[in-house]
Design a protein around this nucleic acid. Sequence first.
RNA 1: GCCGGGUUGCCCGAGUGGCCAAAGGGAGCUGACUGUAAAUCAGCCGGCGAAGCCUACAGCGGUUCGAAUCCGUUACCCGGCACCA
Length: 408
Amino acid sequence: MNLDEQVALLTRGSAGITPQGGLEQKLKRSSETGKPLKVKLGLDPTAPDIHLGFAVVLRKLRQFQDLGHQVILIIGDYTALIGDPSGRSATRPMLTDEQIAQNGATYVDQLSTILDREKTQVRFNGEWLGKLSFAEVVRLSARMTVAQVLERDDFQKRYRAGEPIGLHELLYPLAQAYDSVAIEADIEMGGQDQMFNILAGRGLQKELGQEPQVGFFMPLLVGLDGEKKMSKSLGNYVGVQDVPNEMFGKLMSIPDTALATYFELTTDVPMDEIKALLAAAEQGEVNPKDVKKRLAREVITIYHSAQAAAEADAHFESVYSRKEAPSEIPEAAFAAVDAKDGKVWICKLLASVGLSKGTGDARRTVLQGGAKLNGERISDPNLELALTDLDGAVLQVGSRHFVRVRTT
RNA sequence: GCCGGGUUGCCCGAGUGGCCAAAGGGAGCUGACUGUAAAUCAGCCGGCGAAGCCUACAGCGGUUCGAAUCCGUUACCCGGCACCA
């Protein structure tokens, strides 16, 4: 692959590279000297949270690896002491060394589905941050000014709003910047929200006489709602370890407006093809639903397999589009204890089998016409069923909750 | 330590004595519709075999015929001020 092709590949989906032309320069030098680039990614050890949004960055790293470069993951065990100031007032829980080590391991484990283990180095930043003496910290601090740090959006907002900013929080960017110095990073990858921290790395490297790293930013993927960023806490995410059917369903629920972004950032479908697909959908030549299904299949193929993708598609068609009962219906035991004189109240049954939160909820569902027994809609919330012909009966709530009853 | 503000249902958030199982929004559930588990519209959305009753507005105690609302107290959170100097 020549340089232009490499650049084209790498810049796909990127939200920006600082400085302009920096990537080309680094790549060029690397190919001339035969020395792989060190590409850094900092990770917060608090919560291994691998979803498609995070995967955007990881997949980009993988591309670097495939071009022969070295990825260095930095687990921020030390920076975790501070906590990224991006959040609000919530104090981060202190983690024990053990937890951090374990989280680190979990991370590496999950990450390896995307990254090439061979070309991935994992470091903990306590390794060097822990060795700094107070004097050295002071000396490093002298390399950054308060004005620079306060420039940061988060701080600006909090400062204006009169919210407290801990002195230690000002050290966060410094600490992260020092990571870049410690490993002599060529490139630091991160989401757009990491802009400040990553640029701080450049600054500090320059101050200390190193060649500054290139900041490589990826956009934050929007979540399933199509508006907010994808995150576990917002619950609008697709986990890379989600089972195929779940992935498929979740991806089908994204709004059309998010389609282009998802294709670009989460799949390997060539840009030309993506454009053609979207244009066809726009003009009504293709049903946009089918384009979205294609997206879902592409993603599932990456994290599972093409076969799993096809199966999930078929499952979705049958269960949701045609509203058929799934081939495998979960079974639930119903204890005869809840029966009276060999009869079972329908609401009790729905509740005890887990289809309703309680008899009140069940009653509502029935009144709203949401319950079916063996495919027949139930309309009477006072219905009594004979316990004897219950075994094997299929109960359904709405169009997608099925349970096969087992009397025990 | 002192002063002030706060703590409401899954989440956010209104409510300052009865009309409060508590506005509104979000999430969730059901139905209709459709190109989907999208969007839109409608209904539901503490518990109870449903009548009424019970449990709920941080905990406890009190005032009152009646308290999410008033008083006291405890805990926690957020500001500010002070002490250690």
